[in-house]
Design a protein around this nucleic acid. Structure first.
Lengths: 351, 351
DNA sequence: TTGAAAGCGCTAACAT
DNA sequence: ATGTTAGCGCTTTCAA
């Protein structure tokens, strides 16, 4: 039975017949240690089942080696993917990740930023929910923060994809495929003012894309989706059907929304892509395995989080550098969900 | 511009004209503090934008307030759901969650348990990947650990669903619906010895369910799936089709596997549920929104994580109590994916 | 109800 | 290459 009292560097030092500092040197590799001494220390550590106390190290160094990751909802496919990649990337850098969710109560985002220092984290990677700029703008003393997402602000570093361009690309693709009544699921122009930055940008790109081709962008084809989840997408699609307006393509603002929409379309007997085309955003793992497979905006999630961690590391090292914004390239990945000329959905039977 | 030097309790104490201990009392509410003093201290804290240093508190108290959550792959739907619920439950208890992934390198699981103390975590909730018992069995000094999943062992507390019963339930349901050649996607009897405990249990239940009804359980209907992901499910389903054996139902060992399988079935022109029935495990959020909606084994993920946190809290408080195992009730949720008498898939055209 | 002193385990700075 | 000293910020004695 091993003792419940944890051994300290002092214990190890005594057993090995050296000073605590030497044990520390062995552990951190800071100063050179003679091979003989190192061996002695290492066997003493093994015998005592020694593990360093990171709270003490954190207190001493002012660094915990922990990064906070704040996401709206880890249950959603995109957040889950980002978390997954972040854990991998952090592991490679010897960092730990403390995850927080902010969707349930928006004020958590504020709490998080303003009190990041208490959380034993060296910095924060924040994917904001809504009214995004306000959070970061309204806090006096900012800890090192990297924003991920399409928030326009200049107080923190950020990583983003060019959402307006991506949405325009999606719209153009729909038109190319023969669509002329393209709906959006995610946001409406009516709601764009006081809500998500991402939503506003994607909506703008969509509007631009249609207008370029002289197509109208009526409000009746724009459905706001409060929660960007599968369930939210299903509800949004149902609302679109309930409006009884004709449409022949749907651009969903996330893959999750698209998946919920697909379910409702299938249930209503509307064929994809024969009757209606549909596309998403983010290219989550599942997107290639929906039925039909989902056309979507792709970008490398690993590159995304690597950039975020790079920026954060640099800011932790030097808080005085100018905030930078890094754009991650995206592409349109065409799959079966837009691979046809749509016949269009009409609320009333055609003659 | 606020100062970069963080204020300490000493600073607050000086500004408020009290001792650091009093500030501590105000913060923790340990001893009674006179209303007048409390007000003074609180305004001093506000003025200095004070936040306590949790590393220092952790060092002093031997508690960090952080729980480690180790999962195979946060990108998978089930892990994402568990993480989501865990974050909510932890938030309500004032705990933080540090997440780790173990699927990429199985030895991480070992590292994690044996060195949990370094990670500034008070305890660990561990969803093991494979060879699960060995990890927990082979470490000398165990930190507080709660296992989630169907691992049979008696050194740690654990939370689980009764997988054999659940799998038998699924099999019986398939038979009730008229299936007689029921395949499994997730594990095979050939692979059951040295791999996942969960897999072995679900396989056993499946076998029992079929045998009860005098149905055979040939190896050719059992497909091992290494990664329990959508992609793994798709590959597994493809392998089953490539074997060119007849089947009229598929029990997938997770919903993610089922979703991948659904995609491949659709692509092959095999109708669900008209030709083949399919079911999953876990009832992730997406399961109700596949096409057709997925029959699956449901259990309350929130209850699951609440139980795990309860057990962990009790073990952290008292390490000497006997390890307990808590079974979470499950039900079979029947949806459209098994809502028909299957015609069956035959590799060669019928006559 | 509040203060003073001590120390949690570690490492930077300085000595040797 | 190794030892000594001091202190990170907090809270737990013990006194007042």
């Amino acid at each position: 039975m091993s003792p419940h009292t944890r051994s300290t560097m002092k214990d190890v030092a005594e057993l090995a017949g050296v000073s605590p500092k030497t044990v520390s040197n062995v552990l951190t590799g800071a100063a050179g240690v003679r091979e003989e001494t190192r061996t002695k220390v290492e066997s003493a550590m093994a015998e005592l089942d020694f593990v360093p106390n990171l709270s003490a190290r954190g207190l001493r160094n002012g660094r915990s080696g922990v990064i906070g990751l704040a996401l709206p909802d880890v249950g959603s496919a995109f957040s889950a993917s980002i978390t997954h990649e972040m854990l991998e990337a952090a592991h490679e850098r010897g960092l730990m990740i403390q995850v927080e969710e902010t969707a349930a109560e928006p004020e958590r985002e504020y709490d998080l930023v303003s009190r990041a220092r208490t959380h034993q984290v060296d910095g924060l990677i924040l994917n904001p929910v809504r009214l995004e700029d306000s959070v970061v703008e309204h806090v006096g003393h900012l800890p090192p923060v990297v924003l991920i997402g399409e928030v326009e602000q200049h107080r923190t570093d950020r990583v983003f994809i060019n959402s307006p361009v991506a949405a325009r690309l999606s719209a153009q693709h729909m038109i190319q495929q023969g669509a002329c009544r393209v709906a959006v699921l995610g946001g409406s122009q009516a709601a764009a003012t006081d809500s998500k930055a991402t939503m506003g940008q994607r909506l703008q790109g969509y509007v631009d894309g249609l207008r370029e081709h002289g197509l109208p962008t009526p409000e009746e084809l724009q459905v706001e989706v409060i929660e960007w989840t599968v369930e939210g997408g299903a509800r949004g699609m149902q609302e679109l059907l309930d409006r009884e307006v004709a449409f022949d393509a749907v651009i969903a603002f996330t893959d999750s929304i698209a998946m919920g929409a697909l379910h409702v379309l299938h249930s209503a007997g509307i064929r994809v892509p024969e009757d209606v085309l549909i596309s998403g955003f983010d290219d989550v793992q599942h997107a290639a395995y929906t039925w039909p497979a989902l056309t979507t905006i792709s970008f490398d999630h690993r590159v995304y989080v690597d950039q975020a961690l790079d920026l954060l590391a640099e800011r932790i090292a030097d808080r005085s550098i100018e905030p930078r914004a890094v754009e991650i390239p995206h592409t349109l990945t065409v799959r079966q969900s837009t691979d046809a000329r749509p016949a269009g959905y009409l609320p009333t039977p055609r003659t």
